[in-house]
């Protein structure tokens, strides 16, 4: 990261375990504000665990623990004074499979985060719904059927609904864990287009198995391998002239 870019998330000496198994080792990384950062690496390299540490979801798994420091705007997210539920409003997450609440309408899905925290902003529910769906590029497709079940939408629309749900609570950071892996190429292109626009207002961290996707949507890319951060640099350089031989082998498809 260059010196004139502000770090939104600063990670120092991060280690994470599932029981006795160390899955992330000594990670140091600075995620720049209002940029898209991609995390790539083979299955089991710790990339999903890493982003789950960033909004304190890792600790929800029984036996899982974290050591080290993660700061959001210079505030330690593992400080005793931090309420993890409120933290997850500031650092939202979109998951691999679209997971709208099946019993809720499109409108209620968008508002669910605010309802959960009994937010005073619910007075402005209509404008919040419209705004979040606009930002998620779904408004035009659903504005006439906001009371239909969210589960009735197509897979790509459901994923954009989940993004709208995450945006409705006005997060600062959006973590995306393989957000397109269950989507067809057209729906994938819509999400990628959306990411380009969201960068103006949010810091985005996207975990992806699809290197072309990382190359298309991100400003910086981090390569994880066996729990370690091997290389982290500007995406353009990463995919044309990686420094580390292990990165080169992985992105050219030479890993056994």
């Amino acid at each position: 990261m260059s010196s004139n870019e502000a770090a939104k998330i600063s990670v120092r000496n991060l280690n994470a375990w599932f029981g006795e198994k160390l899955v992330i080792r000594d990670i140091d990384i600075e995620i720049p504000e209002k940029q898209a950062t991609a995390i790539i690496g083979p299955s089991g390299c710790g990339k999903s665990t890493f982003i789950r540490c960033c909004n304190r979801m890792h600790e929800l798994v029984p036996g899982a623990r974290v050591q080290g420091s993660i700061q959001l705007d210079e505030e330690s997210i593992y400080d005793r004074s931090i309420d993890p539920v409120l933290l997850r409003r500031r650092i939202g997450m979109v998951f691999q499979k679209p997971n709208p609440f099946p019993s809720m309408s499109i409108r209620d899905n968008v508002l669910s985060g605010l309802k959960l925290t009994k937010s005073g902003r619910l007075k402005e529910a209509d404008s919040i719904v419209e705004n979040a769906l606009q930002q998620a590029a779904l408004w035009d497709e659903v504005k006439d059927r906001l009371n239909d079940p969210g589960i009735g939408l197509s897979g790509g629309q459901q994923q954009r609904l989940c993004i709208a749900r995450a945006l409705a609570v006005e997060p600062e950071v959006l973590l995306m864990d393989e957000p397109c892996s269950a989507l067809d190429p057209v729906a994938t292109a819509r999400i990628e287009d959306l990411i380009h626009g969201l960068k103006d207002d949010y810091t985005i961290v996207i975990v992806t198995h699809n290197m072309q996707q990382a190359a298309r949507v991100s400003d910086r890319t981090a390569f994880f391998l066996m729990g370690e951060l091997v290389e982290y640099r500007g995406t353009k350089r990463m995919f044309t002239t990686p420094k580390d031989k292990r990165t080169e082998d992985y992105i050219t498809g030479k890993f056994g």
Binding site: M211, Q212, F239, T240, P242, T247, I251, T252
Partner: peptide, 9 residues
């Protein structure tokens, strides 16, 4: 193939 890195070069 969408080649990357040394393959792309």
């Amino acid at each position: 193939r969408q080649p990357m890195a040394s393959d792309l070069r």
